[in-house]
Amino acid sequence: MATIAADERSPGAVGPGPDGPRTGRNRAGRKLKLRNTLIGWSFILPNFIGFAVLTLIPVFALFYVSFTNWNVFGAAQWTGLDNYTRLFGDASFQKALFNTFYYSVFHIPLTLAASLGLALLLNRKLRGVAFFRTVAFFPYITSVVAIAVVWNMLFSPEFGPINQFLRAIGIDNPPGWTTSATWAMPAVILVSVWREMGYYMLLLLAGLQTVPAQLYEAARMDGANAWQRFWNVTLPGLRPTMFFVTVMLTIQSFKIFDLILVMTNGGPGQSTLVLSQYIYQKGFVENQFGYASAVSVALFAICLVVTIIQFIANKRRES
């Protein structure tokens, strides 16, 4: 095997070399392919079995439930596409959908920029860097209840420090933040960026370690400035991690739940109602699990489409 691999070796080959029978002996090639598949599966199976039993089966059940009127108790009656057609006439669902997009469109790029900035800033051997990294990660480990309480206080329209500051610099009519239907969403976005930037910073920090230091030096020698080095060395080296971070960030944004629940509970009115919260409301509060499942499937479909687009874009950039 070792010798074949040596013959087959070509730069950029992915996988354990021999997946094309160039020696002309098809039988051996097929055997190798089979062997390869078996080895591949042997790596995946330990995780996949647990994943299939504990996640896939319930998720399939969810898909089934979305075509029924299940209310948790007792039998589920098949209602066909009823739940899905109902989505089209449900103004609250559409409001939640719109708000989820609104949130994501701002949350994703802002968090990405903030966490990348933090990661670059804190990816060096500085005195006290451990402390600053921990600080950046603190919002993520702090209880979400405490976060909501403190930020709400900072946002308090009359007595909050933020508006006091805004008045001091001459803004007479500062926004009502979480108490205003217009400003509640920007306030939530701000807090969620603050909360999650440390989380993604951590992932990006790990990714930055894969960028070979030698490349920076080579670029420096070529006279590249900091921006050029970032653009031509850091970003390409970070691509796999960036892909991971963007996909996760996108999915997590579409699924935003707990922060909104404790910060505004979807209000004022429905101004910060998002899809996950709507699912919870329909399922656990109103016991319409069939309908809630249909909303989940819709959310899943949206995420899937966006993820596949990201996948294709990533593949294209790769080649």
Partner: peptide
């Protein structure tokens, strides 16, 4: 893609079937 896809399904919506199973 199947693996990643399941990340996109909110847990609240399938935790009851999962709970019944376990």
């Amino acid at each position: 893609v199947l693996y990643i896809g399941t990340i996109a399904v909110p847990w609240q919506s399938y935790m009851i079937p999962q709970f019944i199973m376990l």
